[in-house]
Simulated scan of single mutants.
Amino acid sequence: MSERLYLIDGHALAYRTYFALTGSGFQGTSRSGEPTAAVFGFTSVLLRLIEKESPDYLAVSFDVGKTFRDEMFPEYKATREKMPDDLRPQIERIQEVVDAFNIPVFVKEGYEADDVLGSLSRIATKQKVHVVIVTGDRDLLQLVNEDVSVSLPGQSLADAKLYSPSDVAQKFGVTPDQFVDYKSMVGDKSDNIPGVAGVGDKTARRLLQQYLNLENIYSNLDKIEPRFQKKLAANKENAFLSKKLAAIVTDLELDFDLGACSAPAHGNFDIKKVEQLFRDLDFRTHLKKVAMLA
């Protein structure tokens, strides 16, 4: 069995844990009044991952601001609600947790964490390492192949599903390679990706099953039933814009040292630093778990 590198999608996991816990009534406040729901949830997932999955390597990526997609399409993600006021400072705390465990963080100006994760996956698999991406974002499913799996949360934080190529096909009716083409037609309301107006899930899947990709669909437009032919023709520009917006970049140059990503274990992180941080955050249950790693 090959060694495994777990890549954590920092912002996506922070959002997911924040809304999962606050939505369930979790107070998420330290004795000093600091909001901690997202930090607690993120740290819970991290510790569970280390304990249950025993990864050989770990790394994290965070978003760092505007990207080339915003320049390409100023309305990109414009419909999203702004980050909750009590979540913003928790991102910094999460970064402190990651730093305390001596887990490398990778970011790239002008690109999203998705692009960094995609590029890290490409680099790592060339080194014969199996990659598992831990995220709350289905967009990462386009990266799935025999050497890359994606872990998405289920109904609870502890209920995660690991997607292989066959799992993606079974769940969504398209292959990982077709995921971007699918999104190019159906769009994405959360990212404000337009897609093709009037083409929905069933039609997009049927077209991809028949023509394999967006380019072939447009090359065979005259063979498609008239009502969808008209919609596709009228929205061709939006379709190919959507494909550019949805496609994850996988060829970024990153300073990646696999050895530096060794998962937290005895001797390779400062346990006193972690314990002090957990005391500051009143994470008493986590204190017991981290002692087992030392």
Results as ranks from 00 to 15, higher is better:
90 Q>M: 10
90 Q>Y: 06
90 Q>I: 12
90 Q>F: 13
91 I>M: 11
91 I>N: 08
91 I>P: 00
93 R>T: 12
93 R>P: 04
93 R>N: 07
93 R>L: 13
94 I>D: 00
95 Q>L: 06
95 Q>G: 06
95 Q>D: 05
96 E>K: 09
97 V>R: 00
97 V>W: 03
97 V>G: 02
98 V>P: 07
99 D>H: 13
100 A>E: 08
100 A>M: 09
101 F>M: 08
102 N>M: 05
103 I>A: 09
103 I>W: 02
103 I>K: 03
103 I>H: 08
103 I>M: 04
104 P>C: 15
104 P>M: 09
104 P>R: 08
104 P>T: 05
105 V>L: 13
105 V>N: 11
106 F>H: 05
106 F>L: 11
107 V>Q: 14
107 V>Y: 12
108 K>T: 05
108 K>C: 05
108 K>I: 08
109 E>P: 12
109 E>M: 12
111 Y>P: 05
111 Y>M: 07
113 A>D: 14
113 A>N: 04
115 D>Y: 04
115 D>A: 05
115 D>C: 10
115 D>R: 09
115 D>S: 10
116 V>N: 04
116 V>R: 01
116 V>P: 01
116 V>C: 06
116 V>H: 06
117 L>I: 11
118 G>N: 02
118 G>P: 02
118 G>Y: 00
119 S>C: 09
120 L>S: 06
120 L>F: 09
120 L>D: 01
120 L>V: 02
121 S>Y: 04
121 S>K: 08
121 S>E: 03
121 S>I: 01
121 S>N: 10
121 S>A: 15
122 R>M: 11
122 R>Q: 13
123 I>Y: 07
123 I>V: 10
123 I>Q: 07
124 A>H: 10
124 A>I: 05
124 A>P: 02
125 T>K: 13
126 K>H: 07
126 K>W: 05
126 K>M: 07
126 K>T: 08
128 K>I: 15
129 V>D: 05
129 V>C: 14
129 V>M: 14
130 H>Y: 14
130 H>N: 15
131 V>P: 01
131 V>W: 02
132 V>L: 14
133 I>E: 00
133 I>Y: 03
133 I>N: 00
133 I>A: 03
133 I>Q: 00
133 I>K: 00
134 V>C: 15
136 G>A: 11
136 G>Q: 00
